[in-house]
Amino acid sequence: MDSPVRVAEDLVASGDDGEATIGIAALSRDSLGSDAEPLVRAALAEHGIDLPVPADEESEYQVLLRAFGYLDLPIHFFEGRSMYGFPRGTTKVR
């Protein structure tokens, strides 16, 4: 959780007063990601970024593909997921 907390701290220091952003900045840097997820989603929404909540494995896989495509993430971040296989019917990239 270190990175989102640092970003939120910088945003607050620069004048951002969004409730969720302030909430993230107040978290400990070693907070669990699962504890902070609702705040991170709310902070992104405060900044006009809508993050879909996957309803099933297929939609989770599509979110993952978009993240790798749009963020140019290194392939080693993808390896953990690929070890467990992909949902059926996901050979087609949208």
Results as ranks from 00 to 15, higher is better:
1 M>E: 08
1 M>R: 05
2 D>T: 14
2 D>F: 14
2 D>P: 06
3 S>Y: 15
3 S>A: 15
4 P>M: 06
4 P>E: 02
4 P>Q: 03
5 V>W: 03
5 V>M: 13
5 V>Q: 09
6 R>W: 04
7 V>A: 14
8 A>D: 05
8 A>V: 10
10 D>H: 12
11 L>A: 15
11 L>I: 05
11 L>E: 07
12 V>T: 12
13 A>M: 06
13 A>K: 10
13 A>E: 14
14 S>K: 15
14 S>Q: 15
15 G>M: 07
15 G>F: 15
17 D>Y: 09
17 D>N: 15
18 G>H: 10
18 G>V: 10
20 A>V: 08
21 T>S: 11
21 T>K: 07
22 I>C: 13
22 I>H: 04
23 G>L: 13
23 G>H: 14
23 G>C: 14
24 I>E: 15
25 A>E: 02
27 L>R: 12
27 L>N: 07
28 S>R: 13
28 S>Q: 11
28 S>E: 13
28 S>P: 06
28 S>W: 06
29 R>P: 11
29 R>S: 14
30 D>I: 07
30 D>R: 10
30 D>H: 10
31 S>N: 09
31 S>H: 08
33 G>V: 12
33 G>H: 13
33 G>Q: 12
33 G>P: 05
34 S>N: 11
34 S>L: 14
35 D>K: 02
35 D>F: 02
36 A>M: 13
36 A>Q: 03
36 A>Y: 07
37 E>D: 15
38 P>H: 12
38 P>T: 12
39 L>R: 00
40 V>G: 00
42 A>P: 03
42 A>F: 03
43 A>C: 03
43 A>Q: 01
43 A>Y: 03
43 A>L: 00
44 L>A: 14
45 A>S: 07
46 E>P: 02
47 H>G: 01
47 H>I: 03
49 I>V: 15
49 I>M: 05
49 I>R: 05
49 I>A: 12
50 D>A: 15
52 P>H: 05
53 V>Q: 13
54 P>C: 03
57 E>W: 00
59 S>Q: 09
59 S>D: 06
59 S>F: 08
59 S>W: 08
59 S>I: 05
60 E>M: 06
60 E>F: 03
61 Y>P: 00
61 Y>N: 07
63 V>Q: 06
64 L>D: 02
66 R>N: 11
67 A>Y: 08
68 F>K: 00
68 F>R: 01
68 F>Y: 05
69 G>Q: 04
69 G>A: 04
71 L>Q: 12
71 L>C: 11
72 D>E: 06
73 L>M: 14
75 I>R: 02
77 F>M: 03
77 F>G: 00
77 F>E: 05
78 F>G: 03
79 E>H: 04
79 E>K: 04
80 G>K: 08
82 S>K: 00
85 G>R: 04
87 P>H: 10
87 P>N: 10
87 P>K: 09
88 R>L: 07
88 R>A: 13
89 G>R: 09
89 G>V: 09
89 G>M: 08
90 T>E: 09
91 T>L: 07
92 K>F: 10
92 K>S: 09
92 K>Q: 11
92 K>N: 08
93 V>Q: 10
94 R>C: 00
94 R>A: 03
94 R>V: 04
94 R>S: 03
